[in-house]
Amino acid sequence: MNRVAVIGTGTMGRGIAQVSALGGYEVVVYDVFEQALANAITLIGASIDQGVARGKIDRETAVAAKARLCITHSLDEAAQADLVIEAVPEDLKLKQDLFARLDAVAPRHTILASNTSSLSINSLAGSTHRGDRFLGLHFFNPAHIMKLVEVITGDDTSAETVAAAAEYVARVGKTAVFCKDTPAFIVNRVARPFYGEALRMLGEGVADVPTIDRLLKSVGFPMGPFELIDLIGCDVNLSVTQSVYDAYFQEPKYRPHPIQRRMVESGRLGRKTGRGFYDYQH
């Protein structure tokens, strides 16, 4: 496997393109939005330069990686890669249409992968005729820093496809974990109680925000739940919680907490608005 295509040049797409180029792959990026595509190479280059400045990437590697990056205005051309990784917005219809088109023009051997964090891999694979060469590659944000990739297998994903994906993940310097296609996969699911219990304890008056954060940091969590929600954004945190809850057909243990909605409706979204569970303006 030599050529990787990344569809979508948002934060995740750019991060995936960056690590793929640094891992030695020829990378082609595509975006339906011309302006985003035009900016992508500059932004990825700047991010690689930042890695050099921080001593994380050596200069030669950076130059070589940048030389391996290019853009294309043609989705059909992007589809010619050995591995196509989709990182477009989380919309089932949008992704299914995209994969149906990629499937129609891609060579037989091409593996199609989705970076979805919330949609079913089987639901996406169903829009193609290559369920055996289809899987999820869930990178974490920021993709050029976070070490983990969840490799999600659909019902039809072949062992060869999983092995090829594992090799790709290792070559881009990440750790792969293997996961069945179930809602929220591993991390987004298992982490739910970290937020959910904190919100419930706050609601019950067990302790205040700084105390709950301090206690959880005292056993090794790098950030307390409320600090983390403020960083992620209360709106994003609520929408992830809601989507896991809905994906499990309103399983009560995943139910969002009224405090989450109140934070969002009052515009206290966290660091990005200057106020969330903490005040960042002073």
Binding site: L148, V177, F178, C179, K180, T182, I186, A191, V219, F221
Partner: peptide, 24 residues
């Protein structure tokens, strides 16, 4: 998640350490 066959215990632990920076 282990019971439902989502992933192995080792992969779940690895995922939480590296994907969510849990201490263990």
């Amino acid at each position: 998640a282990v019971l439902e066959g989502v992933a192995s215990a080792a992969d779940i632990d690895q995922a939480m350490r590296q994907g969510a920076n849990y201490p263990r």
